[in-house]
């Protein structure tokens, strides 16, 4: 399973240059995705996780977004240097994406069956009836009941969960090797969330596809991911196998995140929300970006950027107090 990684992101830096400020949305993100694994990117709103995903798919509008440094390699190919038209040939066939809100990601003026069939037509894989039949097969595969007649329906005639299934059907239509799911369950309620995650997971196992799951939902990560990268203010602050990272965090931010999750069963201990709000990415604080909100923060944190510490083999954290958090957390 672990041959060459299918996706390598190295020291990726993305800036949004507006008139007055430069917003540093992503500041040196590195991670790898092995083929067949599920990697999660975890972080709160504005931590740069969706921007990273858009950068991988090359969906960022430039201007205002600029890749200021770093590289993204997909199957060994540096994708940022590819002409966009060549990269579009990869999209859909080898790498695909599921978006957060399926209602807006589907075209409202065509029936869903037509839209899926169009995917085959646009890639020159199937035509006419054949494409329509493949679309119906796909709808069946993602668990839409009565697919032949539902294929004639329009986006607004589907429920939220069904829409997301349609979106997933489109994403896996051409059998990609890597699927990026950008908050696929955020707009759905919990029971539907579980169904969608289960569907994604079973589809992934069937075709041995790798998946990047972008989410702010800790329970989803704990459920399905193999590895996780926790992002804060445009940096990966902690990386490692899911069970280890969430079981025994080594970064103060991960720990704080775990403390702020409510428990569903019974009355748990008092929640400890993270005080303050994420930093203005045009003015990232000196030192560790998390220091104004961190209960471990010391003078060292306020002045010096933390080094990357290898806590245990295969696990890194970017924290001056990694040892302390790891041991007493």
């Amino acid at each position: 399973m672990s041959s060459a990684p299918i996706l390598e992101v190295e020291n990726l830096q993305i800036e949004f240059r507006t008139g007055r400020d430069t917003v540093h949305a992503v500041n040196g993100v590195s991670f790898q995705v092995e083929s067949g694994e599920t990697a999660a990117i975890l972080g709160e709103s504005g931590s740069g996780k969706s921007v990273t995903a858009s950068a991988i798919m090359r969906l960022l509008q430039s201007p205002p977004a600029f890749v200021a440094g770093g590289s993204i390699r997909f199957k060994g190919q540096d994708i940022l240097s590819l002409p966009i038209s060549q990269w579009r040939d990869y999209c859909g066939r080898e790498i695909a994406m599921v978006f957060q809100d399926a209602l807006t990601s589907l075209n409202p003026v065509f029936s869903v069956g037509w839209q899926i069939a169009e995917l085959f037509k646009a890639h020159g894989i199937a035509k006419g009836r054949d494409a329509d039949n493949r679309a119906i097969e796909l709808l069946e595969r993602v668990g839409i009941p009565d697919p032949a007649s539902r294929a004639k329906d329009y986006t607004h005639q589907f429920s939220g969960g069904m829409r997301q299934r349609v979106m997933i059907a489109m994403a896996i239509a051409l059998g990609p090797d890597l699927l990026i799911a950008d908050e696929p369950t955020t707009a759905l309620d919990v029971t539907v969330q579980a169904q969608i995650m289960e569907l994604l997971e079973s589809l992934r196992q069937d075709s041995n596809m790798a998946m990047i799951l972008i989410t702010h939902d800790l329970s989803v990560v704990a459920d399905v991911a193999d590895n996780v990268a926790v992002m804060y203010a445009g940096r990966v602050v902690e990386r490692g196998p899911v069970a280890d990272v969430l079981g025994r965090p080594a970064h103060a931010y991960t720990l704080a995140l775990l403390d702020s999750v409510p428990q569903a069963r019974g009355k748990g201990s008092k929640l400890r929300p993270i005080v303050g709000s994420p930093p203005d990415l045009a003015r990232i604080p000196k030192g560790c970006a998390f220091n104004p909100r961190c209960r471990f923060a010391s003078d060292l944190c306020r002045n010096e950027t933390p080094p990357i510490v290898e806590v245990t083999p295969g696990r890194t954290a970017e924290c001056h107090h990694a040892e302390q958090v790891f041991n007493d957390g």
């Binding site: 858009s54 798919m57 969906l59 038209s85 579009r88 040939d89 990869y90 999209c91 859909g92 066939r93 695909a96 994406m97 978006f99 809100d101 807006t104 990601s105 589907l106 075209n107 409202p108 003026v109 065509f110 169009e118 995917l119 646009a122 890639h123 979106m167 489109m170 994403a171 239509a173 051409l174």
Partner: peptide, 26 residues
């Protein structure tokens, strides 16, 4: 700027395809 145009991009639609199939009908 709508998401379905991004989605079409992410699934490998060419510029011409997006203009013809996603923008013109709207």
């Amino acid at each position: 700027e709508r998401v379905f145009v991004d989605a079409a991009n992410a699934l490998g639609g060419s510029r011409y395809h997006i203009l013809r199939r996603h923008i013109t009908p709207v």
